[in-house]
Design a protein around this nucleic acid. Structure first.
Lengths: 105, 105
DNA sequence: CGGTTATATAACCGCAAGGGAATGTAGTGC
DNA sequence: GCACTACATTCCCTTGCGGTTATATAACCG
């Protein structure tokens, strides 16, 4: 499962994830919160499902959508390669910038 | 400076960031590594500059592009809201999933 | 079984974004 | 000053994506 950068690039889809962070939601609830059409919401949910970012639980005609954080954990792992650049005070950030000044080759 | 999700959604641009993580690069070097045309590379660099993800240092006709990690730090901050879902062994992940099973309302 | 609710899918549209070719621009060295 | 190098910008084309409307599917209720 690759990191779904393009999936997260969509503001409405990030909004959905934020809402699902509180609690699972119905499609109708999400539609209302997002302020777009119901089919529009369903399309975004389809993309989120394909990316493994949400999971569904059927309850009669209703579908409860809930968060699935695994892909976000992978994003976190990707970010880890860069994290040393801004963590720590006398850390690699300064050394990185200093090295750039001294020898930008 | 908002989090540049859409900027990171482009594979070539992420590739550029990966290359710049090692060391600063010239546009020509990036062009060769990416395997696309020089104007194509320049267009991506323009987007990355606008997002604050890279900085330039001019050296005669050459331009040294280097990483600017601040926007990635903001992405990291955004991820922090979700991080408790997958960190820790007896942590909120299980409690989150258990709560969903018990009361998926 | 017919109507209603809740969601998914299909069909269509407009636009913005990525890609290449051609051209512009700035700095260098002879 | 002139050719050359290294990038940037412009123009054009094509594709994909987000959005809506209309339609299909499926489960409930009386």
């Amino acid at each position: 499962m690759p990191i779904p950068f393009d999936v997260l690039a969509e503001p409405s889809r990030r909004r959905i994830l934020d809402l699902l962070l509180e609690r699972p939601h119905l499609v109708g609830e999400l539609t209302e919160q997002l302020g777009l059409s119901q089919p529009g919401t369903s399309k975004h949910l389809r993309v989120l499902r394909a990316a493994g970012l949400v999971q569904v639980r059927q309850d009669a005609q209703r579908r409860w959508y809930a968060l699935r954080p695994e892909p976000l954990a992978e994003l976190d792992a990707w970010l880890a390669h860069y994290r040393h650049l801004w963590t720590g005070s006398l850390d690699a950030l300064e050394r990185h910038l200093d090295a750039m000044e001294d020898d930008p080759r």
